[in-house]
Write a protein that binds this DNA or RNA. Sequence first.
DNA 1: AACAACCTCAACCGCATCAGA
DNA 2: GTCTGATGCGGTTGAGGTTGT
Length: 221
Amino acid sequence: MAPMLFDDSLKREAKPSLKTSMNMITTKKEVNKGAWTAEEDRKLAEVIAAHGPKRWKTIAIKAGLNRCGKSCRLRWMNYLRPNIKRGNISDQEEDLILRLHKLLGNRWSLIAGRLPGRTDNEIKNYWNSHLSKKINQKEKQSGGSTREATVNNPKAERIVAEKVNVQIVNEENNNTSTSTGGEDSNIGFNVDEFFDFSNEDPLNLEWMSKFLSSDEGFSVE
DNA sequence: AACAACCTCAACCGCATCAGA
DNA sequence: GTCTGATGCGGTTGAGGTTGT
C-alpha cells in the first residue's frame, strides 16, 4: 500500500540546500544528500511497496536513487511510513513522553515505541525544542533538581530498558492475536498496565515511585 | 522595511549492534 | 571465533521559518 504521501500537511517543500546543490555540481559521482524531492519520495515508496522495507542499499539502487541506503531508511522511517502521525503532540502524549523520559532517559526509540505514529526523531526534536526547556524552567522555579531516577544508576536504567523491550516484543508477537494483550509470563507483571499512565494504575505508581524516589538506591540484583 | 535572534525539524554522521558467511 | 555488511540509534547540524526590535 502506498503511504500517505505528499499531502498538504507536509511543512517543508523539499528543496535542495545550497550545500546539496554544491555537492551535485562538484561531486557528480557521490551520493545525493540533503532534502528529498517529491519525485525521490515517490520512487522510494514504489520500491518499498514492491520489495518491503529491508535491504536498504538494494532499495536505493532499485529506485534509481543516488542515495545511500541509510538515507532511504531514515526517509521511510521518519516520513513516508504509513500511519505516521503528523501535527502537534497532544497533552497526553507530552505527559507520556515526560514520564517515559524520566524512566528511560534519551532512549528515543523506546519512547517512540510507546507513542503510536510518532517517530524517535520527532520525539527527540520535540524534547530538545520544548520539553527540555520546560523542565529547566520547572527546576529553576522549584529550586531543586528533578533528577532522572535512572541516571547514575546504570543497573536500574538497564532493567527499565529491558522491561520496555519485552513489552514491545510482546506487542509485536500479540499483534495478530485476539487478545487485548499485555500479559507477560516471563517478567511477572502486566506490561500493558505498566505503561498505561493515563489510568494512573496504583501498581504502576508503586513501581515507578520506587524509581522516581530513589536517589541512591533502588537496588537491583 | 530590515535585520538579528531564536525556533523547528529534516537530514546527516558516527558509533554500536546484529546477522550471516 | 572472526569478518563484513546491514541495520538501528542518539547526537548534532543547518536551512528555512517566525518573532522581536
